[in-house]
Amino acid sequence: MPESTKGPTSYFPSIEAKYGHPIAHWQHLLREHRTQHPAARHMDLVTWLKSEHGLGHGHANALVAATLAEDEHA
């Protein structure tokens, strides 16, 4: 039986289905925004995704958490 995805990445399939873009698209936007706004914190990024791109809070939070964690381990 396949192992279920846990944590922020468990939202990825529904994010792609609802907003019509792959996760890589959202991560690219987040990374680009962070380059332009290096002082932006987690909730600043969540608010930006919600206000500028219409994402729901849970989806935006999951994208930010996963992207920041990935970048921290890069």
Rank of each mutant, 00 (worst) to 15 (best):
1 M>G: 06
3 E>V: 05
3 E>Q: 09
4 S>N: 09
4 S>M: 11
5 T>A: 14
5 T>D: 11
6 K>I: 00
8 P>L: 07
8 P>T: 01
9 T>Y: 06
9 T>E: 15
9 T>L: 15
10 S>Y: 06
10 S>A: 11
10 S>H: 07
12 F>N: 02
12 F>M: 03
14 S>M: 00
15 I>K: 05
16 E>L: 07
16 E>V: 05
17 A>E: 04
17 A>Q: 04
18 K>F: 04
18 K>C: 07
18 K>T: 11
19 Y>Q: 01
19 Y>A: 01
22 P>I: 04
22 P>Q: 07
23 I>G: 03
23 I>N: 03
24 A>V: 13
25 H>T: 13
26 W>R: 00
27 Q>W: 08
27 Q>C: 05
27 Q>K: 07
27 Q>G: 02
27 Q>Y: 06
28 H>K: 10
29 L>H: 10
29 L>A: 13
30 L>S: 03
30 L>H: 05
31 R>S: 03
32 E>G: 00
32 E>M: 00
33 H>K: 11
36 Q>D: 06
37 H>C: 03
38 P>M: 09
39 A>S: 08
40 A>R: 13
41 R>Y: 03
41 R>W: 05
42 H>G: 12
42 H>D: 15
43 M>K: 10
45 L>N: 15
46 V>M: 12
46 V>T: 11
46 V>D: 10
47 T>P: 04
47 T>Q: 14
47 T>A: 13
49 L>S: 02
49 L>C: 02
49 L>Y: 05
50 K>L: 10
51 S>P: 14
51 S>E: 09
52 E>M: 05
52 E>R: 06
53 H>N: 07
53 H>Y: 04
54 G>H: 08
55 L>C: 05
55 L>M: 10
56 G>S: 13
57 H>L: 15
57 H>M: 14
57 H>G: 13
58 G>A: 12
58 G>H: 12
59 H>G: 00
60 A>S: 12
60 A>W: 06
61 N>E: 08
62 A>P: 15
63 L>I: 03
63 L>W: 01
65 A>R: 10
65 A>H: 04
65 A>W: 04
66 A>L: 12
68 L>Y: 02
69 A>D: 09
70 E>M: 12
71 D>M: 10
71 D>L: 09
71 D>R: 07
71 D>E: 13
73 H>E: 14
73 H>P: 06
74 A>N: 02
74 A>V: 01
74 A>S: 01
74 A>E: 05
